[in-house]
Design a protein around this nucleic acid. Structure first.
Ligand code: MN
Ligand code: MN
Ligand code: ZN
Ligand code: ZN
Lengths: 141, 141
DNA sequence: TATTACTTTATAATCGTTATAATTAGTCTA
DNA sequence: TAGACTAATTATAACGATTATAAAGTAATA
């Protein structure tokens, strides 16, 4: 049940001293219930029925607050706008070149790549990023 | 010798029916000789001594032309501007979180990840993207 | 209640990039 | 070589995503 996850997220914020405003609650709820990776603008549009006066800056501001609290991760892409993921456990994404759909995808450890890179380059490795691109089943038709 | 690479690139463009203008030659030369991954603006600034009237649009236009000819690859990042790589053979990058330095890094095939993703998600996989982030030797001090 | 800090809103600004239209420069043909 | 055609460059405006600013509203605190 996603309401449990919402409550957990809210408790998390409260402990960090973040006020739970109606806007914050709604943004968080939308993120968790949508089960997707929405953009700030998608969240903004999804909530404009309930909050006709909400500013898009509020969406951005609060996504930043949630990020700092470790509740969401930002997925950045070169061309278009960032997407936000409320699943913060490690996973990768596979993205459809045709329709843009993003699907979660679990794969254990690319630790090997990290350690090889470390020994070859002398960097102290902190993290990595990986995505796979292709055509989703729907778009293959 | 990088002049050989420049000549090869120019021949490549000529065969594709692309005119070699002084600006194009200079952008290409800078890309190849810099041995780095410059942004469009860095190229623009590097050439403003030689071409005081060159428009930044010319840099972008020609980087697109080179991309379409397969001579350069664009590296996109969420926050900041694209970088351009004239090494088009497969390789990954490791990026310093502290100074932004980008270092090439070779690693054979993440084919396994691709095929697993394919079988798990039903996507038809085309390509993937991976980068490693950390702190470079210079910044470790 | 008065004070204070935080939050939201509306709006302007910023940045990287692309579109537009006018000008310039190559290329081709007579 | 002149004239015609085409492509490339330039200057500038427009764009979209995001951030900054300042004013107004709201909640916590004393
Ligand atoms: Mn995800
Ligand atoms: Mn490279
Ligand atoms: Zn699709
Ligand atoms: Zn560094």
């Amino acid at each position: 049940m996603s309401s449990a996850k919402i409550n957990a997220a809210i408790d998390n914020l409260k402990e960090a001293g973040v006020r739970i405003t109606p806007q914050r609650h709604a943004i968080l709820e939308h993120l968790i219930q949508s089960m997707s990776h929405p953009t700030a603008d998608e969240i903004y549009k999804a909530l404009e029925g309930k909050f006709p006066n909400m500013s898009v800056a509020t969406v951005y501001n609060n996504l930043r607050v949630f990020k700092e609290a470790g509740l969401v991760k930002e997925l950045t892409y070169g061309d278009s706008s960032s997407r936000f993921d409320c699943v913060t456990t490690d996973h990768y994404h596979i993205i459809c070149d045709s329709c843009g759909k993003i699907v979660d995808f679990h794969y254990p450890g690319l630790d090997e790549v990290e350690s090889l890179a470390e020994s070859v380059t002398g960097f102290e490795v902190g993290r990595h990023r990986m995505e796979i691109y292709g055509v989703c089943p729907d778009c293959k038709r």
